[in-house]
Design a protein around this nucleic acid. Structure first.
Lengths: 163, 163
DNA sequence: CTGTCCTTGACTTATACTGACCAAAACTAT
DNA sequence: ATAGTTTTGGTCAGTATAAGTCAAGGACAG
């Protein structure tokens, strides 16, 4: 709510959103160079927009190719299994969550058929991997690992629009 | 803001894909010279297409013979079981993998219907999260992030073979 | 004043395509 | 048989193009 609301990033974000709405397929292809030119900025500004607004944790996939005939493709994954009544899972996760609590939550999600067994597996692998790295590589305290676990879990849930 | 023209490579790729679909055997033979002529390019362009689109990591084998009655044969691989495929994939990931390479591999997996879009999304969130943490929290060097990325990716791929 | 978000540009990496030169298989005339 | 010719495909390096990365600095809310 300031001049920020008219920031270039926001303008470009809205432009891409509009393209996504128009293209019914939920995806759109564009040229980084052209976009940058259209909005009078450097090309890397586009990367910033993609990174900060169209990230996987926001439910987007971005594919791109460099070189001749290069492009950037933005894909919006929209999932309608997000029941309005469902509590906000991110609230359940909170700032910190133990390994046990996380696992219980994931079992729950699978029982409610909000994730497939394969999806749950991937999530568990990712969580455990982070945990191990934190413990053995970076000497992260147990509580801080709970914080990081919560962060990762929330990002994933958000990406699946289960947030 | 639509893309200019489809690249020659893509056009030739699609042509070969079509031939593969028509010939149910999962393989097709052709003449490099004829193909080049058909698409109005130099013969080595065909090699480029084969190298970049019909490589083993895309699930293809290419055999060829020079000289009179020479030919190029493109064979679509099918793995008898998931484990084999995962071993193959883990080899492709190797010890280190860049963000770009990882993304390409994931796109590939999805195109071959070995993962769903949702699964891919979760994986990308996990990779990206690890990257962010490595960069901003633990000051991990770019190359070491490539190592860690490869580790995580392999763990996930392996887990999927069991699911 | 401070931390966060935004913006920029120099530098790096990846892809498409071409053409000159190389290698091998088959044919042909001795 | 053998050597030379013809017919194919392979390789590699160069050129053009386009996207990615990173870090330094700017703008702004609190």
């Amino acid at each position: 709510m300031s001049l920020q609301s008219s920031s270039l990033t926001k303008i470009i974000e809205e432009y891409i959103d509009r393209l996504l709405e128009e293209n019914q397929a939920g995806e759109v292809s564009l040229r980084r160079k052209d976009l940058a030119e259209k909005f009078g900025c450097v090309p890397s500004q586009i990367n910033y927009v993609l990174r900060s607004r169209f990230a996987p944790e926001n439910g987007f996939l971005v594919e791109s190719q460099r070189g001749g005939h290069g492009y950037i493709k933005i894909i919006q994954l929209t999932f309608s299994n997000c029941d309005e009544e469902v509590v906000h899972l991110s609230d359940l996760v909170g700032n910190a969550i133990t390994e046990q609590e996380a696992r219980k939550l994931l079992v729950n999600l699978q029982n409610r058929e909000m994730t497939t067994p394969r999806e749950r597996l991937i999530i568990e692998v990712a969580l455990r991997n982070q945990d191990e790295n934190g413990r053995s590589l970076f000497d992260v305290s147990p509580y801080r690992r709970d914080l990081m676990r919560a962060e990762l879990l929330k990002k994933i849930l958000t990406s699946l629009s289960l947030g």
